[in-house]
Design a protein around this nucleic acid. Structure first.
Length: 414
RNA sequence: GCGGGCGUAGCUCAGUUGGUUAGAGCGCCAGAUUGUGAUUCUGGAUGUCGCCGGUUCAAUUCCGGUCGCUCGCCCCA
């Protein structure tokens, strides 16, 4: 505990940063709605089991990256490190498997106990999309198209590359995995320490290693293509065909992998080179095996998540708040009149601020700092004649307006 | 969890080869203007030099630890 410091890896979202986050969320929400997605929210913490079971206790995520603790009732609780498991749990808890297909949108905070870096925090935020109950490649295409359209609307699609791969079906994966293990077993002497560990835990990950020695070994490694079943091959061809039809560009990346067995077929990431090592801004894939692992009926699913912080770093400055009309009262009578005038103007739809103290010069300065569109000056001079002085901050022009006409005269400033 | 860099005012940073009163710009406050903002001029305050300890006559400066940030590794389900 270090005084007034926030917990490591957490941050305050002050108004400017929060506006960026909101721009990301609202853009995504609006477009997802056009694709037929409905918004839901799930708890930010669950029983640890919800995340641990599908992920596997041996993985790094469970062993070192989850925020896990016991609550006062001695229950094992984990702050959600991702959306999918919690949403799937919610679907099963609420019997929504009777209402397939489901198209769900969500956004909110996630928690991972890891070392913070640029664009990587312990509490961060994601937008998330899940399409449950669609086994056809059309679902993959639509989910990716939705992601691409959101990135485009945010003005950052052109700063990213869509990387695409297939993980095949269960039979393809099993055959490929066996071939890889057999190949790497014959090259153990050339593998890095990390990759020797990966060989035990997650051999596909070796393909993505940044170690130079590993890269040389990988050059000769068997390719997944040869191990794809006809069915998996056709599925991937249809996904690519759909993307082509929509004019969505992509790069095949055979090293784009997922470790867990319930992932299958399509894996994709929109990546950028503008964020250092944290290049992925939106990533997802198909997880047909997840519902079964979590105890529900076997149900196909595909989804993606995007990091709001990372997107917020990339977008252009969003529009600021609506420029207010500022009431500048002079004296007690002016303040009394200003209070009621401000309220009626707000009810009429204007953004109105009411300075709280100071002389005229001081209040005018504050109004300017608020980026005011205009000021309404209410002094004894004005009130005696039932008028207000209206000053346009852009033109510098100033006119007297009868109080009864104020609302109409302000219409252009709404 | 592992390795590198950094930490001075609200912000961006300079500086002290260890020396007594630590600086700039921006921002902030006040005045010129007690009925007029943005411009201009004048003045003012910025501070635990991250924190704790060590060395020293003397530490913001050197050393160690710690916290935080940052870049990378691991990992990203």
């Amino acid at each position: 505990m270090a005084g007034l410091q926030p917990v490591r890896g957490t941050q305050d979202l002050l108004p400017d940063a929060h506006r960026r986050h909101r721009a990301v969320i609202e853009t995504a929400r609006g477009i997802a709605a056009r694709y037929g997605y409905q918004e839901i929210a799930t708890p930010i913490f669950e029983f640890t089991e919800v995340f641990a079971r599908p992920i596997g206790v041996s993985s790094d995520i469970v062993s070192k990256e989850m925020y896990t603790f016991k609550d006062r009732g001695e229950e094992e609780i984990t702050l959600r490190p991702e959306y999918t498991a919690g949403i799937v749990r919610a679907i099963l808890s609420n019997g929504l498997t009777q209402s397939l297909p489901l198209k769900l949108f969500a956004s909110g905070p996630m928690f991972r106990y890891e070392r913070p870096q640029k664009g990587r925090f312990r509490q961060f935020h994601q937008i998330d999309v899940e399409l449950i109950g669609v086994a056809q490649p059309l679902g993959d295409v639509e989910a990716i198209a939705l992601g691409a359209e959101i990135l485009d609307a945010l003005g950052i699609l052109k700063r990213t590359v869509l990387e695409l791969n297939t993980l095949g079906d269960t039979a393809s994966r099993a055959a490929y995995r066996a071939a890889l293990v057999s190949y790497y077993d014959g090259h153990k002497g050339s593998l890095s320490e990390d990759s020797l560990r990966r060989l035990e835990v997650n051999p596909l990950r070796i393909l993505d290693s940044k170690d130079e020695g590993d890269k040389r070994v990988n050059a000769e490694a068997p390719a997944f293509e040869a191990y794809l079943t006809q069915e998996a091959h056709d599925f991937f061809a249809k996904v690519r065909g759909g993307l082509d039809a929509l004019g969505i560009a992509y790069q095949l990346n055979p090293r784009l992998v997922r470790g867990l067995d319930y992932y299958c077929h399509t894996a994709f990431e929109f990546v950028t080179t503008d964020l250092g090592a944290q290049g992925t801004v939106l990533g997802g894939g198909r997880y047909d095996g997840l519902m079964g692992i979590m105890g529900g009926p076997e149900t196909p699913g595909i989804g993606w998540a995007a990091g709001i912080e990372r997107l917020a770093l990339l977008i252009d400055e969003p529009a600021g708040p609506q420029r207010p009309i500022v009431i500048v009262p002079l004296g007690e009578a002016g303040e009394a009149a200003g209070l009621t005038i401000a309220q009626s103007l707000r009810r009429a739809g204007f953004s109105v601020d009411l300075g709280y103290s100071g002389n005229l010069s001081r209040r005018m300065k504050r109004a300017d700092k608020l980026n005011a569109r205009a000021a309404i000056i209410l002094g004894d001079n004005e009130l005696a004649r039932q008028v207000a002085t209206l000053r346009d901050f852009d033109s510098g022009e100033q006119v007297e307006v009868p109080l009864s006409e104020l609302e109409a005269r302000l219409a252009p400033f709404r």
